[in-house]
Structures are given as structure tokens and as C-alpha cells.
């Protein structure tokens, strides 16, 4: 029988080893790479560790979103649902993060669903805590926001390139159809 870790481990969690591990995970993350040791330590007090079982939803498409998650352990599948059916967008593993748009999107609605593929430990970072950092430690907040905007900018660039490629491919196929 599985140990009911969700009751006890979660209740008495933050020991020193866990905190060090958490800081190590944060240090590796692009959003927090520029933070100093002290800032990372402060950040670790604001983050939430959540444990998900296989096939458990982290969130569902169109749910109201509040923040992002970093994968400390395990794998997460990102899926979209539409009238044409479900589509697997990507599978993320340790060190990756997702849901970061909710930190800046005023609509706060998830554009895809996230599902744990195995027992997964996530570290949640939420908008109210980002706002608290901006209020209490503006310098640190600016560092996070700068990294966040670079990530969103890079993803926008990649999306634009994909759209250009698709448009070009569509135009070529239309010309081909016309010729044929």
C-alpha cells in the first residue's frame, strides 16, 4: 500500500535539504538565473510545492490561471482540446516550466491543459507572489520580469516563424493546385 505522503510529507515539509534542493532547481531556471543567492532564498519562501499523481490534471484548458509551474521531478503533457479533437502539443520534463502567461495575462485563462504523466513534483509561482516581490523587492522583481519578457518574446518569435512557414507552405500548395 502506498504511503499517504500527501497528508504527512506535505504538512511537515520545508527542511533544510528540501530548501537547498528547491534553490538548486530555481538556479537552473531561465526566469531566476539572474537572481542572487539571497534573492533565491527569499523566492523559495514564496513558492508552493505540489505533488501530482499519474494522469492528474494540473489545470485544464479555459481554467482560470494564476501562475506558472516548474517541473522539479516527473513529466507533464500539454494538450489542447477543440471541436476537431484533442491534440498533444508537447511533453515537458524536469527543469521545464509552463503556464508563465498567467503571470502577465489579465484574462488569466489557460490556453491548454497540463496533465502529469507520472508522479510529478511541481513548484508553483503565482501572480500575487510576483506582485509581492515587485512591492517588497522591486530590483528582484524587475530581474524576473525581464527574464519573463525575454522568454515570452522568444516564444512569440518562434510562433511567428512557424506561422510564416505555414503561410508559405500554404501559398506554394495553392500555386501548385492552380498549376495542376
Amino acid at each position: 500500500m502506498q504511503h499517504p505522503h500527501f497528508l504527512w510529507k506535505d504538512l511537515f515539509r520545508l527542511n533544510k535539504a528540501d530548501k537547498t534542493l528547491l534553490i538548486e532547481v530555481l538556479k537552473e531556471n531561465v526566469l531566476f538565473r539572474t537572481l542572487s543567492g539571497r534573492e533565491l532564498s527569499y523566492l523559495s519562501t514564496l513558492l508552493y510545492e505540489r505533488v501530482y499523481q499519474p494522469e492528474e490534471y494540473v489545470f485544464q484548458q479555459n481554467d482560470r490561471g494564476l501562475g506558472m509551474y516548474i517541473i522539479a521531478k516527473g513529466r507533464i503533457a500539454i494538450k489542447t482540446q477543440s471541436s476537431q479533437g484533442d491534440a498533444l502539443v508537447t511533453v515537458l520534463s524536469e527543469g521545464s516550466f509552463f503556464g508563465e502567461l498567467a503571470l502577465v495575462d489579465p484574462d488569466n485563462l489557460r490556453s491548454a491543459s497540463a496533465i502529469a504523466l507520472e508522479r510529478t513534483i511541481l513548484i508553483g509561482f503565482f501572480k500575487p507572489d510576483l506582485m509581492e516581490i515587485l512591492e517588497r523587492k522591486p530590483g528582484m522583481g524587475v530581474k524576473i520580469l525581464f527574464q519573463l519578457s525575454s522568454v515570452i518574446g522568444r516564444r512569440l518569435l518562434e510562433t511567428t516563424e512557424q506561422i510564416s512557414l505555414l503561410t508559405r507552405a500554404k501559398t506554394v500548395s495553392e500555386i501548385h493546385e492552380d498549376v495542376v
Partner: peptide
């Protein structure tokens, strides 16, 4: 913040974000 974190550890995953948002 630590007390708040301990409280949220008791919230089930599926209600976590909603409870977090509402309490905040």
C-alpha cells in the same frame, strides 16, 4: 508566508489555484 504555505498544503490540487486566488 510560511503559515500560509502550510495551510495551502492541505488544499487538494484541483481546488488549489481557486482557493489561492479567493483567499488572496
Amino acid at each position: 508566508p510560511a503559515i500560509r504555505k502550510q495551510f495551502f498544503q492541505l488544499v487538494p490540487n484541483r481546488f488549489f489555484e481557486v482557493v489561492f486566488l479567493v483567499t488572496n
